[in-house]
């Protein structure tokens, strides 16, 4: 459970304040690309926070969360595509470019797939769960590669960002940034409540001793599946934001590397902390930005960093900064 000690609260507010003042500062320094970079980070942080709910609190090691992200992105992208092309999508409906419609749909689609994957994979556990979630994510990857009508391997270009209640306020990069930040803060606050609630306690209880939970009268499957679907839906929201950020959707969003990197963000930042994954995402993107300046082969460095982090840096950045070992 996220600790409510002062240092942790201070750090959380600190990172959120930093993210809040980033756009004006970056623009003042004449570095607009910083806003773009940070926006991308926000979106992945949102997905990583969602992943922490299942991975950190429930120890459901999902190696396929990028699929939910990608499904969310494709939902937005495909609806946009039909809207712009004025071609019928389903039952004569010509899609939509409206965020208030497309984003909830993106969450719904991701949640639906999470329900399917979870219902099959949560009947087993441990290493099996890792392999099955990975395989099902790969299936969606190939599904979108095969959809030639939506660009196949090359992906689908969006001609504009979504409209919000008919207005094109998302056309502004800075507005989009703050919308993403708002979503991240809202999701973070919501999940902090969830893990502290009765429901959250059940999830943590299942992680610690599933047999005990069953003996007390709980059916772990139901609660784990609910958490998994919730996490999938939030990753789908991240996908909807990612589509707007990139103005492009691509099968690469759902690749197994993306799923792996989401897990890396959670681990680097601090497992079972919810705030930690934001630090993790920040660090990973910053590391990439710095290393790429020196070498295109930045993952040659990232790989060993990751191994060392697993071996010697158990609490993640959040644990290190708050002086706590969590998870």
């Amino acid at each position: 459970m996220p600790e409510t000690n002062k240092r942790a609260t201070f750090l959380t507010l600190g990172v959120l304040a930093f993210l809040a003042i980033l756009p004006p500062v970056a623009l003042a320094l004449d570095r607009p690309y910083m806003v773009t970079l940070a926006n991308r980070m926000l979106v992945y942080a949102l997905a990583a926070v969602a992943l922490d709910l299942v991975m950190g609190y429930g120890r459901m090691v999902s190696f396929g969360h990028a699929a939910f992200l990608g499904l969310g992105a494709y939902t937005v992208g495909i609806l946009h595509h039909h809207d712009v092309m004025m071609t019928p999508f389903l039952f004569g409906w010509a899609g939509s470019n409206e965020a208030l419609l497309a984003w909830p749909l993106a969450m719904l689609v991701a949640a639906g797939y999470a329900l399917l994957v979870g219902a099959i994979s949560l009947r087993t556990g441990g290493v099996y769960f890792i392999m099955i979630t990975l395989a099902f994510a790969q299936m969606v990857f190939f599904f979108f590669v095969s959809l030639i009508a939506y660009g196949g391997r090359d992906g689908l270009v969006m001609f504009s960002r979504n409209s919000v209640a008919g207005t094109d306020i998302l056309g502004s990069r800075v507005v989009l940034y703050y919308v993403c930040l708002g979503c991240l803060v809202a999701v973070l606050a919501f999940l902090v409540m969830v893990v502290r609630s009765r429901f959250g306690r059940i999830i943590e209880g299942c992680r610690q001793n599933e047999q005990r939970m069953r003996a007390l009268g709980y059916k772990p499957f139901v609660y784990k599946l609910t958490a998994f679907v919730l996490s999938g839906a939030l990753a789908g929201l991240a996908g909807a934001l990612l589509a707007n950020h990139s103005e492009f959707v691509s099968p690469d969003f759902l690749s197994w590397e993306s799923s792996g990197l989401l897990m890396v963000m959670v681990l680097l930042g601090g497992l079972s902390t919810l705030v930690g994954p934001i630090y993790g995402a920040l660090t990973l993107f910053a590391l990439e930005e710095v290393l790429v300046a020196y070498t295109p082969h930045w993952q040659l460095v990232l790989g060993p960093v990751l191994i060392l982090a697993v071996l010697f840096f158990k609490g993640g950045l959040y644990g290190w900064m708050t002086g706590k070992r969590t998870g």
Binding site: L300, G303, L306, V310
Partner: peptide, 16 residues
Amino acid sequence: LDQVLATFGMILFFNE
């Protein structure tokens, strides 16, 4: 989870 992440790190390393 630790095993997955460490060996994922190895994949990144060797692919590069």
